[in-house]
Structures are given as structure tokens and as C-alpha cells.
Nucleic acid binder design. Structure first.
Lengths: 222, 222, 222, 222
DNA sequence: CATGAATGAGATTTCATTCAT
DNA sequence: TATGAATGAAATCTCATTCAT
């Protein structure tokens, strides 16, 4: 599994570094939850992974659920950070949009924890997300980027007029998400690893092309 | 046509009907697994849901894992049955393909258990799927349908030549799957139920249009 | 400690005697709660005392609190049974009342669990008692007995007219209860066991005489 | 007159006032022990209640048991102070004794901590009381008062000759104690708060009258 | 085939106490 | 004197599985 956050290995005993300990626990929790889900994760394993006594996990996070919520917030923070693409506008609307789709796909590949935690949270009907400090997706910068690119595309008479932003966002995300979320069952079905670089490249092309083809003003409408 | 086992609800106690009991247990298991995942599901709850003693569940399915595999097979059977669309060809390649995309989306909406069980099975890296009696996706009839429609589209000079079937299959599934799999977190983020009919209709249009737009031969290539 | 209920010792494994197991667990629980209170009692110890796996205790009683409520109900049943004195009337009102006071004292001495569980339950402000199937004291037969004896005493011009039944009940109970409840601290303070037979006899006399002296019509009122 | 340590509420943080901190901790401990008993009390909660770090509680009192013993000593100090009634003699033996009974009752009502801690200490068979710096009840001034009043009553030919002081002390205490100790279960059983003023007044009358009636020389013995 | 009481291993959580600062 | 992070042992509770009936 790809690890992005620097993961502190076992901390030495006697340390009085509350923030460090919290970070180590959170990192271990994200790993464990990503691997086994909420119900399948073991607090023992998380404590061991953080190099910390089990009691400290409860001291800092209260309960398994509390830790889950913290992990969720972490995943959403990653999502927001990963989608904060401000440099796309210079590419123009068509190539900008294609890059956006590619970037979303790349984000899910780089951060399987986002995919895994979201899947699990949907199993719980987003119960914990509502308890999280803020529903973080609301400030999703991706939305703003999409709207800017759409406006530019319409102004240059390149894009269709009637695009529903939400639907476009969902479609673009779904194209990348599914490939990652179902990596293993798809690989089993197709009898070959979906994550071989050339397969990824092929799919990335398709996915970008699909978004762009959809957005482009039909030829006959000139 | 492929048949899926009819799932009976709650049996009345004392019935001497081994097959009925098995079906009731499987149905209860699918419900429980869909709701809580593999680790979160409770054998007690499954027995209660089937109106059956706990021991009988083990008698018929051996273990929780055995029951999970049976539930997975059931989900895949549903998937195959739902994608067995032989009547599409008469619509022609473009409309046939659009209908296929719509149908896939509709299947996931109608059977959340497919989505939930697949997600969970991916958490386990498809370990059980490989243990299932047959890897059922291999004879996926959807593939055949797609290839038939693609061939027709190419023959009529409507579709692009270079379509990767697997990528198309994944993209088409992903567009529908994500919307269902992430129903709750997306609804929380967008502050409104994603499953209101008009929203579904909007998305279905986008999804179908996206597939068709991608496949269509570029205007300039006539 | 004096044990009244026949306590089943360790049951042999594999027994399929749910009622027997429940009774054994309850008996062990009453012992443990009497000894250590609600918070101090150990479920492990109760299971061991009943010769039963820990899980079975939870299977039958749900939680420590559930077991506590069952123990409370048991104590109240003992109280009711012990106070069901129907044979007192033949002694006449004065001696009947004295016997009643003696009997109440004797009941608390014979059943320290009543005293201990009530004390603890008061610590919890009777929270569990309200959750018990029925507030069992309401049908307290002692009340009926007291009222019958009072009526007889008044009819024979022996008792004062203005007796508050509730207050009399509380006073009579208190005289016996305190002696048992505070056995250990009083013994420490008086540097000698309060439960030596001659001390008990002395106190029993005082307690009976006090009740009777209170009830008796003042000499000058003839 | 005997002084009882003034119990301060919550201290402001950072104060350099060791005695103040000790007093605050003790006060919080008495509250917590009164509420939850020895086993049920939480050191965390006591520290929080005292506005002090947990470590400081251990620094000053060594252990939970040490704190419990201190709390017990505090309760016994209250008891002694409350029963230090030197002004009763002027009322004469009969009214003096009645006032004594009332005063004892009032003391238990005003200080539930005395009742609660004594109950709990009896659960432990007065184990800690013996470890307390001095067994404080031994110099119980109430005893002296009782004996003085009894002597006066006998001298005036008002009281019976054969009164056992210990038994009288126990009876008098028990009448008041039980009413307070069993406040909640009795209130539940009688479906009404026992601590409503008119009920207290009724009981106080009964309790005083009972003591006096017992002590009074029988009419026929003139 | 069917029951559900019973188990035992292991899960989450609690909490008095210690200790680096 | 004072803090509060950290520990470790032990508590309550869970749950897949077994087994006598």
C-alpha cells in the first residue's frame, strides 16, 4: 500500500509529546481502518502500530468511533488537499478538464485510504460524517475549479451549455473511484492486475476522453 | 435466461423444509452483510432474521466465511442476471449502448447488496471470491453484449475504432456504481438526498450521454 | 456470612439446564454484590462462583446492571416473604406488635443481603429499583399486618389513636436495620462484636419495648 | 467546641497553596465517595472536582484508600461535631432526650455524606476505620450527654432504671439513620418523596416520642 | 434436521497509579 | 508543589462456534 503521510514508527517510552503521540495513533488507525474496515479493525493493532499503550488511544480519542471520525476527517482533508488544483486554468478549458479527471483518478490511486474509508462510511450511511466537526466536502475546491473551467469553455463556445455541475462532479469522480475501489474483484474477474502501469494509462486516457467528449459542443450545433 | 434464487422472507418455525431454511438464512445473511459488512455482521442477527436457530446456520453453511461466500455468489448471480440484456441489439448501437449504461445504473440502484458486498470483498482483496465455486464474472454476458454493439457501431461507421472493451466496461460500471456506493456521503456533502427521482434522472442522462459521446466517431473524421 | 438460600456449587459442564444455571448465577451474584457492592463486584468472580463461563452470565442477564436488578428483585422477594406474618393476630395487639418488631430485626440479621443491597441501591437513588419489573414493596404484606394490629389495639383501647402507619413502619424497620447495617463500624466503636447473642437479646428487648411503649395509650388518658 | 475543616469548593489553577489544594481534594473526594461509594468513585473525577491534576491527589493522599480514610475521618469529625450538644441539660431529661433524638435525625439529614460513607465502610467491615489515625467514635460526646440526661431522669424518678446506654444510643441513631439511608428506596416504595417537610416533621415527632415513651417510667410503677 | 444453552478466546474499555517534566 | 501524558493490569462485554438434547 502506498503511504503518503510520514508514519512515525514506535515511539520511545516516557516521551511527553502528546501531539506526536496523537499523530502516530491517527496514522496507525488510518492504516488499520483502510485494511480492515471499522468493525474489522483492532484497537490492539492500532496501539501496537503507533508504539503506544492501548489506554493512550482511548485517552486521546475516547473510543473506537472517536478514532474512526478522526480518521475520516483525515481522509477528507487529503481529498480536499488533493483536489486543490488552481493551476489548471492556463491549460484552457478542454485540457484543464481532462487534467482534472486525470488528477482525481491519480488521487484515488495514491490514497487508497480515501476510497476505503468512504466506502465504509457509506456502509454506515454517513452517520459519523454528520458527527464530524464540519462536513468537509462542502468547501470542496474542486467544485469551484469545475465551474471556472465550464464558464471558460462556454465562453469560448467549446462546451455544451446545459451541464449539471453536481452530476459532472459525480461522474468524474466515479470514473476514477470505481477503478480503485474495485481493484481486486475486477482483477480477479479479468484475471490480471488492474494496476499494471499500461492498464492504468489506458484507462486514464479513456476516462479523460470520456469527460471531454461529453462536454464538447456537438459538431452539428455550430 | 439466468435464474436467481428466489429469496424467501422469514420462515415459520418448525417447518421441515431444509431448502427453505437455507434460502431464508441466505436471504437474512445478504441483508445483514449489506447492512454491516463481513466483520460487522452478527451470526445471531442472521439466525434471528431467518427465524432459525443459530446452530442451523452453521449446519448449513459451516462458518461465517462460508455464509459470506454464499452471499457473494448470490450477489454475482444477481449481477449476471441483471446484465443479461439480449434485446438491445434491435435499438441499434448508439441507443443500445445508452440503454446498457442506463441498465447498469438501474441494476445497482435496485440491488444495493451487489454494491455493498463487492465493496466489502475488495476490502479483503477478493480473497473469498477466489474461493467461490466459480469466479462468476468470467462468463459475464455484459461483455458479449458490449462487443456485439461495438462491432455494429464500427460497421455502421458510427463508433471510434480504438475502443478498449475492458476500459469501457469499467467506465460504464463506475459511472453507475459510484453514485450508489457513495449515496450517503455524497448526500451529506451536497446536503440533499441523491436518490430523489429527478436527481437520478438527471444523472442517468449524463451517464448515458457520456458513454455515447465517448464512443461516437469524432465529427471531423467523416 | 449467613447463607439462607441453598447455593448450588459448580455445575458440571455440558449441562443443559437453563433455569438451574440462572439460579446458580443469581445466587453467586447476590453473594458477590452483598460482599462488594455493585461497583466492587466482579463478573468473573460471579461466574466462577456459579461454576459457569463468564459469557453465560451475560447471555442470561444481559449486563452487570441486569444482574444487579435481578439480585435486587431477589432481595425484595426475601423481604416480602420474611415479613409475611399472618399468625400474629392471635397474640393480641401488644404482643403481636412486639413480635413484629422482633421479626423484622431477625429478618435483617438472617439476610444481610437485604440490608447490603438496599444500601447500595440507595447510593444509586433507587434508579434500578424503578427499572425492576414491579416496585415490589408496594404489595408489602407487613403494612396490612400493622394496620390490622393497630385497629385491634385501638378497638381494645390499648393503643393511641393518632398513629401514622408509614412512620411506624419506618421506625420499626429502622430500629432493626441500623443495628445490622452498621454492625462493623459500631463494633469498632464499641470495641466488641455487636452480634454476640446476649447483645442481640438486649437490643431486641429494647427495640420491642420501644415500639410497644410508643403505641400504648398514655396512662393519664384513661 | 469541635471544629470541622472548612471545605472549599474548586480552586483556581496555579495557586501555590498546598493546604488549600488538600482541602479542595478532600472536599471533592467526600462528594464523589458519597455519590458513588469507594469502588465506584473515580480518581479522575475527584481531581476534576478539586480543579487539580490527578498526580496531585496521589501526592497528597498516596492512594485511593488513603483518600478514603481521610474522607472517613472527615465524616466522623462531622458526626462528633454535630452531636456535641452541651446545652441540652437545661431542658430537663425528658425534653433534653427528645431534642437529642431530633438533633441526631437532623444531623443525618444535613450530612448525607456521614450516612453514605458509614454504609460503605460497613461493606468493608470497618477495615479502614481501624486504620484511621484514631478510632474517632470512642470519644463520642453523645455518650456522655446521654448518660448525663439518663442520670438526671433517674434522679427525678422520671426514667426507668434499667436502660442500656449502648442500646439506647443505637436505637436513637437507627431511628434517624434509616430514614435518611433508605430515602430513595422508601420513596420509590411509598411513591412519594420522604423528604417533603411535612413528612419529615411527622417522622421527627414519632421518633422523639418513641424514645421518650420508652424511657419514661411505667405509670403503674409510681 | 433442528434447537439454544454453553463456551472460550478475544474484543473494547476503564482506571489506579507512575513518572518525565 | 504541580502537571497530565502514559502505562498496564484488569474490568465488562462480545461473538463465532460447539454440543447435548
Amino acid at each position: 500500500m502506498i503511504r503518503v503521510m510520514v508514519i512515525r514508527q514506535r515511539r520511545k517510552r516516557g516521551t511527553r509529546d502528546a501531539e506526536g503521540a496523537k499523530a502516530a495513533i491517527l496514522a496507525a488507525a488510518v492504516r488499520e481502518f483502510t485494511d480492515k474496515g471499522l468493525a474489522g479493525a483492532r484497537m490492539d493493532e492500532i496501539a501496537r502500530g503507533a508504539g503506544v499503550a492501548k489506554g493512550l488511544v482511548f485517552h486521546h480519542f475516547g473510543s473506537k468511533e472517536g478514532l474512526w471520525i478522526a480518521a475520516l476527517e483525515h481522509a477528507y482533508a487529503l481529498l480536499r488537499a488533493g483536489q486543490d488544483e488552481t493551476a489548471l486554468d492556463v491549460l484552457g478549458p478542454v485540457e484543464g478538464m481532462r487534467r482534472l479527471a486525470h488528477g482525481t483518478f491519480r488521487l484515488f490511486r495514491a490514497h487508497p485510504e480515501i476510497v476505503a474509508l468512504m466506502n465504509e462510511e457509506n456502509l454506515h450511511r454517513a452517520r459519523h460524517l454528520r458527527a464530524a466537526k464540519a462536513i468537509p466536502l462542502l468547501y470542496n475546491p474542486l467544485f469551484a475549479t469545475i465551474e471556472r473551467l465550464l464558464a471558460a469553455g462556454r465562453a469560448q463556445n467549446l462546451f455544451r451549455e446545459d451541464v449539471d455541475v453536481t452530476a459532472l462532479y459525480v461522474a468524474m469522480s466515479g470514473l476514477g473511484y470505481f477503478y480503485c475501489a474495485n481493484r481486486w474483484t475486477l482483477s480477479a474477474a479479468f484475471a490480471g492486475d488492474l494496476f499494471r502501469p499500461e492498464r492504468i494509462a489506458t484507462y486514464e486516457d479513456v476516462l479523460g476522453e470520456m469527460v471531454v467528449a461529453y462536454l464538447r459542443k456537438p459538431a452539428g450545433s455550430l
